[in-house]
Design a protein around this nucleic acid. Sequence first.
DNA 1: CGAATTTGTTTATCCGTTGGATTATTTGGA
DNA 2: TCCAAATAATCCAACGGATAAACAAATTCG
Lengths: 417, 417
Amino acid sequence: MWHCQGVRVAALNVANPGAARQGSLREHNLGLVLRHVATAERPPSRAGLAAATGLTRATVSALVDDLIGGALLAEVGPTPRSGAGRPALGLILADQGPAAVGLEINVDYLAVCVVDLTGMVRYRSVQPADLRPLPPQVVLARLAGLAAAACGEAERQGLTVAGAALAVPGLVTPQGVVRLAPNLGWRDVDVAAGLARPIGFRSPLVVDNEANLAAIGELHAASPGSDNFVYVSGEIGIGAGIVLDGVLFRGARGFSGELGHVTVAPDGPECRCGARGCLERYAGQEAILAAAGLAAQGLPHGRAVAELADLAAEGDLATRGALTAAGTALGVALAGVVNLLDVDTVVLGGSYAPLAAWLRPAIEREINRRVLTAAWSPVTVRPARLGPDAAMLGAAGTVVRAILDRPAGWLAALQNQ
Amino acid sequence: MWHCQGVRVAALNVANPGAARQGSLREHNLGLVLRHVATAERPPSRAGLAAATGLTRATVSALVDDLIGGALLAEVGPTPRSGAGRPALGLILADQGPAAVGLEINVDYLAVCVVDLTGMVRYRSVQPADLRPLPPQVVLARLAGLAAAACGEAERQGLTVAGAALAVPGLVTPQGVVRLAPNLGWRDVDVAAGLARPIGFRSPLVVDNEANLAAIGELHAASPGSDNFVYVSGEIGIGAGIVLDGVLFRGARGFSGELGHVTVAPDGPECRCGARGCLERYAGQEAILAAAGLAAQGLPHGRAVAELADLAAEGDLATRGALTAAGTALGVALAGVVNLLDVDTVVLGGSYAPLAAWLRPAIEREINRRVLTAAWSPVTVRPARLGPDAAMLGAAGTVVRAILDRPAGWLAALQNQ
DNA sequence: CGAATTTGTTTATCCGTTGGATTATTTGGA
DNA sequence: TCCAAATAATCCAACGGATAAACAAATTCG
């Protein structure tokens, strides 16, 4: 038999450096069963899981017992079925087990949420405030207060906080240090350390870029199967979260996704980064507002985008023109991304989401013109499914996903505690 | 304890969809041991492998026995060591076991090689010919002849051909169909099927883009650890092979790496792809030759690059200027790639390799100017280690790597045969 | 009401890794 | 020269986890 590129490795592939011991089997299969329950559209039975995974009914039963014992799964009453045979007990993700805290620092608000295993948002709190004048320590202290309140509320609802993740609008190192957050005026702030003291719970904290986490939020919200996309986060700056084969790509050193500083025109206007012709100068929020004639009005951050959308909907020519110009620049940059990575979807998020209707034609025009393979593999451009909460929800999503991916870690933590 | 992004999954991660059975353990650990031998710089002993992998000496012995039985490993005489104790038997990759056939179709030659597990090139044959006027069937038939000769030679040397891979200068689908190879004039040629008939051996055939396979060749040739890079293949067109975390990224639909059609200037000259301002119009071979004043001479493909290098070395101003201009355009496009993917290395391959000395300054200048994170994470620009054989060697390398990654597949094939 | 059917559990067995004991082969010191 | 120490590799009983087949439970259909 002749095969081609798709020679997929059957199991336990190269990515895993360590030795596979007996327990690794269990670890893998626990995750396998749990993820099958998570992605099934109706509560599956143990027998159904056995058929779907290829494991034996006996093995699945043993695994499910462990997962129920660890408050990751729950049984629901027998579902009415057609045909003969003993009725099956449905299995669902537990809504009384571990929960994730999602945090977000943005230019004009702090936000926190609690999400359970099923993806349900169990608590949500947003505190608007202009954070730019405040020193990082003060901001982190406030955030810690919000996080503590969220943890308290989670416990009150019978949930156990398994971890937290924080979205920041800037460059974040893998160690959780904010190297640069221009819109906050932050530089080299050790957020992970700064938050570790105030909050007490000993669980992993992930700190990551806002666009990256919003992309993960979108990945969760989207129908399963669409797992190659670029999430474009249009705010004051322009970030991109790149999801390849269902996994967020963070770059060799954690600094991927700087779409805003991709060159659109080599000799274009100077950007505050020092280069010339960066996308941000054409499609950043300030550029769009200026082109639409709204720059001078000094609208508050959140209001400006709504104003643009209103004017565009009313047919205001200057606004429409500004959005077409921005869309064209975005399209040029995104065509490069698609040429390079062959993603099949571009998701317009952040402040681009409400403006998508007017940005999309220009973006699609440039992509279709400039992507070599556009004829064979069409590219979908669509607005984000999640609203402004995307990054916070994605942050919580990373924690949820970590548990779903490796339930053994959670079960072990339960034991030791 | 607080952790940050680097929450690595210990073993058997999500990428593997299937159920992990007992045999999966063996499969994983066989690969683990084999790869440790492959990457060690001196022949390791069984005990050393046990210490390095975390497995028991007993387990390692059993695994090594299997690998030796399958002609993947061999023992070497006891190495002189200092200190007391029974001397260890060194283990090395077998050079009498499986071998890989690497194939390449290019504009002006066909090439074939045989590479053994250790990476040694055991046979190499290049047949120069202008292939553009020939119909694909004829080219494939010739290639099949070369491949048959290579297989015969491999067998004569005591090797067993385990598989073959073919590099093609064009867009290749995951099924092995060449969708478009502009420089060959091919369109929708089912290469995998066309080669399956003439060659008889039943082993996997991978067909892939020339830049992708050259990137794999470079990955093999480079010192281990440098596994995030973009390999830029400068030929008539410009392709890119993207290696992320040591794995070639092929894109959602197999069409990644079209660097040549990334936009450098949105209103630049028209490209044959229909768009405007593609990189190819600035840094493609034809553009460089034209700028250097060599276009009219109609030099043969291979000679033109050497001529450029000679002139540049002599200090010819027109040539130097042409290369600087090309390097600037390349730098603009590559800065975008680095902004997006945060790779730490750019490898100049194909005809860019001999010209790297004159291209590099301009490329580095643009990257340093335009990459936002250049200050924190410097980018290395270097010529390829492999010469013009890179793609062919990389093709063979994919087959070798497939065996190294999953020796169980090879062992099973031996059994069934 | 019993046969058929499907679910979930129990039990004996197999497979691969583990840990300790054993054997093999060297160096170094008495 | 010979014996103790040290290191390498193998042997073997035990264990953990998956499997297959038998069994028990709960339902539908004739």
